[in-house]
Nucleic acid binder design. Structure first.
Lengths: 210, 210
DNA sequence: GCACTACTTGACACTGAGTGCCATCGACAG
DNA sequence: CTGTCGATGGCACTCAGTGTCAAGTAGTGC
């Protein structure tokens, strides 16, 4: 039988292996380009076998995308804990800030995150996987938005589109993320992006659905 | 040297081959599922060689996605010919209607288009490629929106986000496309979706950029 | 009819992603 | 010391996608 605290013995060893694999992969992919680096190159750099790589990551794209997209649950919980009186644009802005805040907590991670974002946006295969992951985010966000607004997520298109607009704002920020941007500059970009979609997110006509 | 009218002799033969391949592929993929059908199955059904398939389509996803996404240029030209006095939400609604109108021109094509849309939305790999194609649309739409509004597409996030919101509306319509929906019902769904994003698309604050 | 050219096709071989299977090794409980 | 469990590595396999080459099939000029 397993100990109740599963995050102790073997689990941390697995995490170490996953981190090594991820670091080796990001280093090679970011410097040499996604297409020219093979999985064999990655596992050679990490000193492991090809088979082990696919036990930790579902695909070559997965290593890169999961580095950014593992925080999905945090976004939802953040949105769920925002006061219900807050207008959708404000609540969503705070929820979508969570992954960026996680990057900025440690400055040395921030730069690597920016490089990975650039790699994703510039590599069609990665961009596609990134959007695929965003689809899941959008569905979860839409469910939470429906909760907050009391709308039916199946009959009313507002929740799904509100989630889509929030993710579009995040995408715009990532697209405009330049080298050397500090946390404050990122916050400004985020505010600008949400200022554009806010009139639609908070429009009174959409909330009391016809 | 080639004749000036390149759409005559060999070009139509190529089109016939491409159509046969596409029809065989859509038939198999839609009925049996994307993952279980191999390229060998498709070319066997079409009576051609595997190598020929990849001369006409870049990938297995490409057959499906191009069936819907070949009308990119039409969208842009439609947007370019809309009167410049038209508010962005109206002009974009008409532009994004073009691919749906193309489906509805021939009712027997409409049903197949709906099935392909369903296949794309339900297959993660296809959905990702579809969104990847949408990114190109978004960039071209953003350039045209920037043209119309006189904004700089690099410094101002509005054009890109306006294009993104329009595509989000289209996506919402496709998601809600049910069997038996006629052209009028599709138009209603389109109006509903654009009504939600219109306050952001037409907000006066965003047009005279700070 | 005959050669020349351009284009398409099919066959083969090859790389690389991703999966299934099995043997092995190390940790740990008895 | 021994049985068990999980992690690993090696191997073989399928399938997507590409490069290359030989053969077939027009059209064109002689």
């Amino acid at each position: 039988m397993r100990s109740s605290a599963d995050t102790s013995l073997a689990e941390r060893k697995r995490q170490l292996v996953a981190d090594d694999l991820r670091d080796a992969a990001l280093m090679l992919l970011a410097t040499k380009g996604f297409d020219v680096v093979t999985v064999d190159d990655i596992v050679a750099a990490a000193g492991m076998s090809r088979r082990t790589f696919f036990r930790y990551f579902a695909s070559k794209e997965d290593v890169v995308v999961r580095f950014l997209a593992d925080t999905s649950a945090d976004i939802i919980t953040e949105l769920a804990t925002r006061p219900s009186a807050e207008p959708p644009s404000v609540a969503l802005r705070h929820a979508l800030w969570v992954p960026l805040a996680a990057c900025n907590d440690h400055p040395e991670h921030s730069e690597r995150a920016r490089v990975v974002v650039r790699l994703i946006l510039d590599t069609p295969a990665l961009h596609a996987r990134w959007l695929e992951r965003q689809i899941e985010w959008r569905a979860e966000l839409a469910a939470e938005v429906a909760n907050r607004s009391g709308l039916d997520p199946h009959s009313d298109p507002y929740p799904r589109m509100a989630a889509g607009m929030a993710l579009l704002a995040l995408d715009t920020v990532l697209q405009r993320w330049q080298p050397g941007d500090d946390e404050q500059h990122l916050a400004e970009l985020m505010d600008q992006a949400f200022a554009i979609v806010a009139p639609a997110l908070d429009a009174p006509a959409t909330l009391p659905a016809a």
